[in-house]
Design a protein around this nucleic acid. Structure first.
Lengths: 135, 135
DNA sequence: CTGTATCCAAACGGATACTG
DNA sequence: CAGTATCCGTTTGGATACAG
């Protein structure tokens, strides 16, 4: 057991305020916290990638969803879209400075999930077993 | 400039494996990265909260969604549900040890969103304006 | 207070076909 | 290559009513 008071996160941003400000936060969290958005941001952490490469790295995302998500992120100012006027069209996506502040937590989150996926799977089995045969 | 074409991700955990393992990661990311899950975890960072309190702190979530999300998180082993056999039923939810590793990135993420919500809103306005009047 | 169950509309999201 | 448009099944999620 440790502290039950102030934690390591100083900013009073996550307090129990429930105003219009919080509405925006909820909305944004729904967009950025989105499954695909997290993976896209994670995939671009090293540098720019083109459309097809992005689709491969993310894995399992349809063309449609990738396009839609990229547009949203671009609109939110989190990534730039650069079109190279070449014969075979080439488009590269890159994180903006704004997105870089987001990079650390997102990467940690993705890594945590990757590291603990198996453990979570175990917990699910236990939970499901308890619901079915015990209790 | 180094080679950046169709390369894979560097980090140990976010490999390019497109197998069942990565499928699980995507799935989990979709659940934990969920709008409500992030807010619930963020809301519980200080300590246990009961159902109604949780609903207030999160704000804007329906009873149904709160219940469903709590069950999911419980199933994943991220929080515990304690029922106090009192006359007016009281149920408290608390993060597990497992969830604590998730706490840092989630809190950072939520705080980033809260801090930059306004900036993102501005980017959206700019983007929308460009689509309508320029190009 | 803390849920569960049902109804139902809206959004999500894949598959496919087509374009520049 | 990098999209856009459409169809259409699946899922999400609020509202409401009811129960322990």
């Amino acid at each position: 057991m440790t502290d039950v008071e102030t934690t390591t996160l100083g900013p009073p941003s996550v307090c129990q305020e429930a105003g219009a400000e919080n509405q925006m936060v909820r909305d944004l969290l729904g967009r950025i916290g989105d499954k695909w958005s997290l993976m896209i941001i994670g995939a671009l952490h090293k540098g720019p990638l083109r459309f097809s490469a992005l689709q491969q790295v993310v894995g399992g995302i349809s063309q449609r969803m990738l396009t839609l998500n990229l547009r949203q992120l671009q609109r939110d100012g989190l990534l730039t879209r650069t079109v190279y006027p070449e014969v075979p069209p080439r488009v590269e996506y890159e994180l903006t400075e704004l997105a870089h502040g987001l990079l650390a937590p997102v990467l940690q989150l993705v890594n945590w999930v990757a590291d603990n996926a198996d453990l979570v799977r175990k917990h699910r089995e236990i939970y499901d077993a308890e619901q079915g045969g015990t209790a």
